[in-house]
Design a protein around this nucleic acid. Structure first.
Length: 359
DNA sequence: AACTCGTGGAC
DNA sequence: TGTCCAAGAGT
């Protein structure tokens, strides 16, 4: 990209965007947009929070379920914590769900309308620089500079920024700002992100299909696929833990709500040991005849691998969750894997078929 | 300023 | 298989 070409590149990008038909349930279609229909700020905010570090494909059904169950921010604000956490189960990064509720309640308490500027939005729980800018641009037409991972990559290539991440961030924000138009900033932001998601991809970018390839310095130098450069990540350690699944005669299950802070905070799970890099000591939640299962649960989090030994027992006790109130879908994925294994292991089985990989 | 925090898909 | 990666925020 050369100085002075920003407007031309931006126009090419927008016309490409207008020709796309990427259907997402939170977007206002081209016809409605042309008729002056604005996106619902609640929908924009909800989708942007769900999309933090999460793919469009993963978000789509969650967004539909949330909006069907809680059509407006006031409905969400009035929801019970457990209901929201259960609806979020499986989507990951559960602090987002806790902050989503805090934010909804703050907005509802302030009259039910979202702040209409990036600065105002930024003060709400769970809304950082990216989300504040995205909501302000898409819902309120503010020419805010929207910078996510896609934009960083697109901009790093357009200007052939070779500084490794994250040191390059300030320079990339500066470039993204030069490219942000005063008209249709929301569409511009979405166009940049769509371009990054579909054409200017991390590996094998489809430069032949790119609407701004003529402006791209990295393409001209033949280094598009190498940018943005980043420093190598440290290897993930493996941690070990124990999980105990107790079944009551009536089908009840022993579950616990995890503390609000930390890993899987606020979510349901099975009692068990801490997860450490050394072998955990047995710590059954109650006295019973615990049977160890032959397979273990494997799961990988952002920064460590986990291997869980699972124990099952048929027993009785206090505090079991009744069968009618338990849904495996309300569990975070690692706990759902424990459940799947325990449920199969608690049944008599022929032979000993190996469990699927990573379970 | 690093570190923590999930998950599923693409290669 | 494992690694990388995604529309980041909070601490």
């Amino acid at each position: 990209m050369r100085d002075g070409n920003e407007a031309a590149a931006g126009a090419a990008l927008l016309s490409w965007y207008d020709a796309q038909a990427r259907v997402m349930p939170w977007r206002v279609g081209p016809a409605d947009r042309a008729a002056g229909v604005r996106p619902d700020p609640y929908h924009v905010w909800l989708s942007e929070v769900m999309l933090q570090q999460t793919t469009v494909a993963a978000v789509r059904d969650y967004f539909r379920r949330f909006t069907a169950r809680w059509p407006g921010v006031a409905d969400l604000a009035a929801a019970e914590d457990g209901a929201v956490m259960a609806e979020w189960a499986g989507l990951g990064y559960y602090a987002r769900a806790r902050n989503l509720l805090k934010c909804a309640r703050a907005v509802a308490a302030a009259g039910g309308r979202f702040p209409e500027t990036a600065e105002g939005l930024r003060a709400l729980p769970g809304i950082g620089p990216y989300t504040a800018a995205a909501v302000a641009a898409i819902a309120f037409d503010e020419p805010a500079v929207v910078v996510d991972g896609n934009v960083e990559r697109v901009v790093a290539r357009l200007w052939a920024v070779e500084t490794p991440m994250p040191a390059a961030k300030p320079a990339l924000i500066d470039r993204a700002g030069r490219l942000t138009p005063r008209r249709r900033p929301g569409d511009h932001a979405q166009a940049m992100m769509d371009l990054g998601a579909t054409i200017c991809t991390p590996r094998n970018p489809a430069c032949a299909l790119c609407p701004v390839s003529d402006f791209c310095a990295a393409k001209a130098q033949g280094i598009a696929a190498e940018l943005p450069r980043k420093t190598p990540k440290p290897e993930k350690p493996t941690r070990f833990g124990l999980a105990y699944v107790a079944f009551a005669p009536d089908g009840g299950v022993l579950l616990e709500r995890r503390p609000d802070k930390g890993l899987l905070g606020g979510m349901l799970g099975f009692p068990g040991s801490d997860w450490a890099e050394t072998a955990p000591a047995p710590c059954p939640p109650l006295a019973a005849d615990w049977t160890p299962l032959s397979h273990e649960v494997r799961h990988t989090f952002t920064h460590f691998h986990l291997r869980l030994r699972v124990f099952v027992a048929q027993t009785e006790g206090e505090g079991f969750t009744p069968k009618s109130e338990f849904s495996p879908a309300a569990l975070p994925t690692v706990m759902r894997k424990v459940w799947d294994l325990a449920e199969a292991g608690a049944l008599p089985r022929r032979g000993d078929a190996p469990a699927p990989r990573d379970i």
